[in-house]
Amino acid sequence: MEALFAIAIGTLTSCAVYLLLRARTFPVLLGLTLLSYAVNLFLFASGRLVVASAPLTDQGIEHFPDPLPQALVLTAIVIGFGMTALLVVLALRAIHATGGDHVDGGER
């Protein structure tokens, strides 16, 4: 299970990095989205993998997952959304300002 999880994080990161290195804003936005998945999963992994359980103390559960990384990742997901949104608007402004969607504001 751990190996699978690590493979998933690695694949997501690879794809994200490749997209981040593209020259147009849209692929970069997609890359950032992928990267935030990878980072969130990584943070989540710091609580280790617990199957078929929940951090709910009234359910008679024996083996709890770690609630702390979960709480951190929850806010990270929401903030990631705010960050993506900001970048989307920045990208739109860049189109407005330069007339194109190249990340450097034009060919170089």
């Binding site: 751990e2 999880f5 690590a6 694949t11 997501l12 990095v17 490749y18 992994a45 609580g47 770690d66």
Partner: peptide, 28 residues
């Protein structure tokens, strides 16, 4: 770029693997 991406992804994956296979101590 593919090479960079694969290298970074490999690093992230190995890091995750190392993290997941270390003993766990928590304040949960």
């Amino acid at each position: 770029d593919t090479m960079v991406a694969v290298a970074v992804g490999l690093g992230a994956g190995l890091l995750a693997w190392a993290l997941l296979t270390r003993p766990f101590s928590t304040i949960a």
